[in-house]
Design a protein around this nucleic acid. Structure first.
Length: 885
RNA sequence: GGGCGCAUAGCUCAGCGGUAGAGCGCUGCCCUUACAAGGCAGAUGUCGGCGGUUCGAACCCGUCUGCGCCCACCA
């Protein structure tokens, strides 16, 4: 962009000036303006939020991206929505905060840095904890900038001065504070349980970090007992044969008569020489398999519960790498090697009585590295979620928090109502270290943020860190300074809306609800939860590296501009539904941006202005009144869509209003007015200025860059970022709307005729217009211009007559006309109209319909019948007007 | 095993009780002095199948088929 965006506007009443558009090239080139505009916005502080402001607050926090990552189209999509919401609210006069920041993303980040180390042939253990963490910080400082750079490219209007990181000192303090409070309230505790263990990441993970997938396995049935001849042997089935090394019982249902005599006895566990008890437990389904279950308390969550009920020992047979530790021939084998080795050994003993393979069952995998999860008995820290989850459910049930789209509520309730305690400890080095200190005599002390850890011999801090979602759960208030009661916290908490993908409803949203309600004395963290879908490719397929359909948004932004990418994403954003996106569609959006650009250029060339008040309606042409009436309707509709988070609807509406109505009709109709000059031209120039000014402001939240360039050029205003959001003036002119609709009908019909006749679009045709009684007389010049009609000369000889909507257009086609084709076409139209007439007449003769249908429907049918009658008359007249061949 | 959702034009999707829509794609004509990244005109659908409710169903109910997603201690 050049300096002239800062020029003062065309003076009121001046002749159309060419100065403003002089430097606007004929095509919009995003790369030339976007970066400069963004830097200007930031320099001027438009995106900063003032806690002291007396404007009403509007707050949205960024779903913090992983520091090590880079933005993908999903982020671009999410940011487009958030940015659009906040930009609109800013224009509406709110003190707007779009809180930026990033997440330390515990496991994910640690994995990335470990991979880097692996390239150097090192492991984190070679560095040691301290050096490793230092290395991660270094990595963070290198890659964190990448994301903010991408956000700038996107045009994200975030308050950069407030950028936060979940491992910041302040946020760490928030973590420590809430941990301490939860601990003191006995909502955090330590317990030994079966947890989901990732043998690759070497840490516990929570239930929702496990992804289940159907997988082929082998179900083997094993005879426990003295041997095949033993009448009291019991057959059990398993897909994880290696765990039998840790079996400490066989369980049967208490009512199962087949096994009743064995309950309380002991049975031989093959391969081990051990004898294990047979217990009766309700959990066993007597109808499944043989009705008997092997029990491995140390390696299966169900078995753990059974073991607890029957006071069974737990025998751990695998280490943290899932290598067999049990003494014997299997020691040192990996779990899969052990599985086949155990089955082989059992088979050799004749103890395998049945095998079923493939046997499809659901297997859990680490969501971070896809390694098969190994249930493992271990000591971990837990959040007792009962009371927290109940409050989180209640806040939505009683309407304090709304979920959009509403269908997602059932998922939310299903989760918070059936939540198991949350395992929050991770055996990682990157993260918030749990503020617990253990004493020499087994004491446990939770250390608050301002407290000194216990000193002295034998005290040491817990080595585990917290689940990364523990800190992101505090994000809506930790970023505002909590636990301090800062001005920002007072001003911007609760947040207004929370915009994020439905995929992290449980991971993040539910946790924020729980922590927000708990930490902020029952005030939910936000009042609206807006869940968007996932970005997919143009065929609706998930984007993934494996499919090779991953798109780098920067690539598209480079080629088509940020506005095009944003507009495409917004236009696909139906609530809660996945959004497919393809390059063709981005091109279409780029074309739209270019269209807006050129329409504004045209307007400027014709003196469009925003100076002075709008002329009174009675001083305006019906064309002007029509577009102003439509404009205000659109303003109201866009507002309604925004309030309902209907981004696709509002984008589509603006696209069609701008392109179809303003550019293709209003601008075209106004060309003759501008050409004629005078008062009417000045009035239209003012109206066009008004329409563009408003349309650009309406478009700005979804297309910030092109609208900024054009709006400042058009209005001379400082920036559309801080312009007022348009409001519906209430002006409506249905008569003008009707008149223009008729005008459009006439023009379309004649154009159709011309096209059917093979007349070249630019070819001038002598014509006589009869417009009396149609109300269209004032539009004669425009009609002639749009239809390329010349005045009828002395030798005028009409060869085609088109009566349309009461108007009559006689064309002198000098014999070039294809009457047969036209007759055929009109006959087809006539048949359609007659069918319509028959249908509507039948309907109006239906007593049930008349009795039960609402008035407006009946009136609608009447109108259709009248229209059909009119069409028949019109087409008949056209047919008659055709010369007989 | 439980729950939710989706099947509408070639593709991707709106519409969710009263004449079947959009974008892209497609066909024809045009560089009509803002824009060919454009203009004008046009073609295209037994709204997944079968029943039912209704004066009227793409829309409501039932059912079948095919997909997708979420949840679950599927030994």
């Amino acid at each position: 962009m050049t300096e002239n965006t800062q020029q003062s506007p065309t003076p009121a009443g001046a002749e159309p000036s060419n100065s403003a558009h002089a430097d606007l090239p004929t095509q919009y080139v995003p790369a030339e303006v976007e970066e400069k505009l963004y830097e200007r916005w930031v320099e001027r502080g438009y995106f900063e939020a003032d806690a002291k402001s007396d404007k009403p607050p509007y707050t949205i926090v960024i779903p913090p991206p992983n520091v090590t990552g880079s933005l993908h189209l999903g982020h671009a999509f999410e940011h487009t929505l958030i940015d659009a919401l906040t930009r609109r609210k800013r224009m509406q006069g709110h003190e707007t905060l779009w809180q930026p920041g990033m997440d330390h993303a515990g496991i994910a980040t640690q994995n990335v840095v470990e991979r880097e180390l692996a390239k150097e042939g090192k492991s984190r253990h070679d560095l040691g904890r301290e050096a490793f963490v230092e290395r991660v910080w270094q990595w963070k400082s290198e890659s964190g900038g990448q994301i903010s750079g991408q956000m700038r490219r996107l045009g994200d209007g975030v308050a950069w001065s407030r950028e936060r990181f979940t491992m910041d000192e302040g946020l760490s303090r928030a973590v420590q504070t809430i941990f301490k409070r939860l601990y003191d309230d006995e909502l955090i505790y330590r317990a030994e349980r079966i947890i989901n263990w990732c043998p690759r990441c070497l840490t516990a993970i929570s239930d929702i970090e496990v992804e289940y997938a159907d997988q082929d396995g082998e179900l083997v049935s094993i005879r426990y007992g003295a041997g095949p001849e033993d009448p009291d042997s019991i057959v059990v089935a398993t897909t994880r044969a290696e765990t039998m090394l840790g079996d400490t019982a066989v369980a049967v249902h208490p009512d199962d008569e087949r096994y009743a005599h064995l309950v309380g006895t002991e049975i031989e566990l093959p391969l081990t020489g051990r004898r294990i008890p047979v217990v009766a437990d309700e959990h066993v389904d007597p109808g499944f398999g043989t009705g008997a279950v092997k029990v491995t308390p140390a390696h299966d969550p169900n078995d753990f519960e059974i073991g607890r009920r029957h006071d069974l020992p737990s025998i751990t047979v695998m280490d943290e790498h899932a290598i067999i530790t049990a003494h014997g021939p299997f020691q040192g084998l990996d779990r899969l090697e052990a599985r086949s080795a155990v089955v082989g050994a059992l088979r050799a003993e004749g103890r395998i009585v049945a095998e079923k393979r493939p046997y499809v069952h659901s297997v859990g995998h680490c969501s971070r590295c896809k390694t098969t999860i190994e249930p493992r008995l271990s000591m971990q820290w837990w959040v007792k979620v009962g009371p927290l989850a109940q409050a989180a459910g209640a806040a939505v049930r009683d309407g304090r928090v709304a979920i959009h789209p509403k269908e997602m509520e059932s998922r939310y309730f299903g989760w918070v109502d059936n939540l198991h305690d949350w395992c929050i400890s991770r055996q990682l080095w990157w993260g918030h270290r749990i503020p617990i200190w253990y004493g020499p005599d087994g004491e446990t002390v939770c250390v608050g943020p301002d407290e000194e850890p216990p000193a002295g011999e034998g005290w040491h801090q817990e080595t585990d860190v917290l689940d990364t979602w523990f800190s992101s759960g505090l994000w809506p208030f930790s970023t505002l300074g909590w636990p301090e009661r800062t001005e920002s916290l007072e001003k911007f908490y609760p947040n207004s809306a929370l915009v994020t993908g439905y995929d992290i409803l449980f991971f993040w949203v539910a946790r924020m609800m729980m922590f927000g309600l708990y930490a902020m004395d029952g005030t939910p963290p936000f009042s609206e939860i807006v869940l968007h879908g996932m970005v997919r490719d143009e065929h609706g397929k998930k984007m993934s590296k494996a499919f090779g359909n991953v798109v780098n948004p920067l690539d598209w932004m480079d080629r088509y501009g940020s506005d095009a990418v944003r507009f495409t994403l917004a236009r696909g954003a139906n609530p809660g539904v996945d959004v497919p996106i393809g390059e063709d569609w981005v091109q279409a959006s780029r074309n739209f941006a270019n269209k807006v650009w050129n329409a504004t250029r045209f307007a400027l060339m014709n003196g469009a202005t925003v100076e002075g008040g709008l002329p009174a309606p009675e001083e305006l042409s019906s064309t002007d009144r029509w577009i102003l009436s439509r404009l205000n309707t659109v303003v109201a509709e866009v507002d309604a869509y925004y309030d309902d988070y209907q981004f696709a609807k509002l984008s589509d509406l603006l696209y069609h209003f701008a392109w179809d109505e303003v550019f293709d009709w209003y601008v075209e109709l106004s060309k003759t007015t501008f050409a004629a000059g005078g008062g009417a031209a000045r009035a239209s120039a003012r109206v066009l200025g008004e329409v563009l000014d408003t349309t650009l402001r309406l478009l700005h939240p979804v297309m910030p860059f092109v609208t900024e360039t054009l709006w400042t050029t058009l209005t001379g205003g400082e920036s559309v970022v801080i312009a007022d959001w348009p409001s519906d003036s209430g002006f409506r002119d249905t008569a003008a709307e009707q008149e223009i609709a008729t005008l459009q009908q006439v023009i379309t019909e004649v154009r159709r005729f011309r096209a059917d006749q093979g007349l070249q679009p630019g070819q001038r045709v002598p014509a006589r217009l009869t417009l009396e009684g149609t109300g269209l007389a004032v539009h004669e010049a425009a009609i002639r211009s749009l239809l390329r009609l010349q005045p009828a000369g002395e030798d005028f000889r009409a060869t085609a007559s088109l009566p349309v909507a009461g108007a009559k257009v006689e064309l002198d086609l000098s014999g070039a006309i294809d009457f047969a084709a036209e007759r055929k076409r009109l006959a087809k139209d006539l048949a359609a109209a007659e069918k319509e007439l028959a249908q509507t007449t039948a309907k109006l003769g239906n007593e049930g319909f008349l009795a039960k249908a609402p008035d407006h429907v009946v009136d609608g049918i009447r109108a259709r019948r009248e229209q059909a009658e009119a069409d028949i008359a019109r087409i008949s007249a056209q047919l008659e007007a055709l010369p007989q061949v």
